[in-house]
Design a protein around this nucleic acid. Sequence first.
DNA 1: TAGGAGGAGATAG
DNA 2: CTATCTCCTCCTA
Length: 330
Amino acid sequence: MASPGCAAHLPVFIGHPHHGDTRMVSLYEDIKPSRSLLGLPELSWPGVYIPCCDRFPIQENPWMLRMAEPHAPAALPYGTLEPSPAKPSQAQDPPCGMEGQVEERCLEQVQTMVVGEVLKDVDTACKLLNIASDPLDWSCVHVQKWLLWTEHLYRLPQVSTLFQELTGRDLCSMAEADFRQRSSQFGDVLYAHLDIWRSAAAMKELCPPADRKSGKFNLVSENLSAADDDSWTEVMRSYPSQPIHLWQFLRELLLKPHNYSRCIRWLNKEKGIFKIEDTAHVARLWGIRKNRPAMNYDKLSRSIRQYYKKGIIRKPDVSRRLVYQFVNPV
DNA sequence: TAGGAGGAGATAG
DNA sequence: CTATCTCCTCCTA
């Protein structure tokens, strides 16, 4: 994606780009595309560069300072991601002395967190979409799901129609120019996003989840949302088979408040009472998950109501709009 | 006008 | 056959 001497910006949304609580950074690919790490033994992305380090001098950057603390970095508001002028030389300057070592370690930590978050996001998307993490394994249907998801994630106009009848292998064999040919405006974004997925798949192969859990990537899940991650993993273990049921899907969203609290959230977790805050968003997510592009809240709510007589979901004692209750809370 | 309740036929796995 | 999906009517806030 990067032409020589003209490195490209690779936006990576950590969490969800539409939400204020999103921690978002832009990965800067320096010279080599991230795919080039496929053959690398070490588990770091060469050239991954955090442009926010440019914008905020490290000693004045609270976000950077918080890296050393045990909790999550503060959110970077959506919209601050505009590619800042690339300054590769600055990123590549060898740090000097103790200060330089601290800075380097800090950068390493950030990189590790970013990569860990990317892997987590890819994992989450895989589970929500029910597709393999490795694009090479995707069927045409999986490719369409991934495209719909990417459209949704980056708020792209409909691009999935431009990539019909393509398997994941077809997609992976395409050069950036081929992507641009199909979509002159967003081909590069799709290419970059696919690149992230391919890199993540390669990385997962090099470093299985068990290793990641106990290894360096633990930094991320420990620091950012350990409880979330555990419950999420638990949920996925509980429902390994397909197809997923709507109530399970809703519960999954509820168990990822970091990503989805803007569209669905607990009002009373103990009692299993939740509220759908953004009907269109939840319906769209469900539609993507079930490959039903025409899904809307009207239909989704009808499906929820089917659970009334099955005793899975009901309206709370005090009925309120968009508020439902799991009959058997977790 | 959006959301809620529920009937009923269609559809996918 | 089950679990929705889809379309529908009627009701309510």
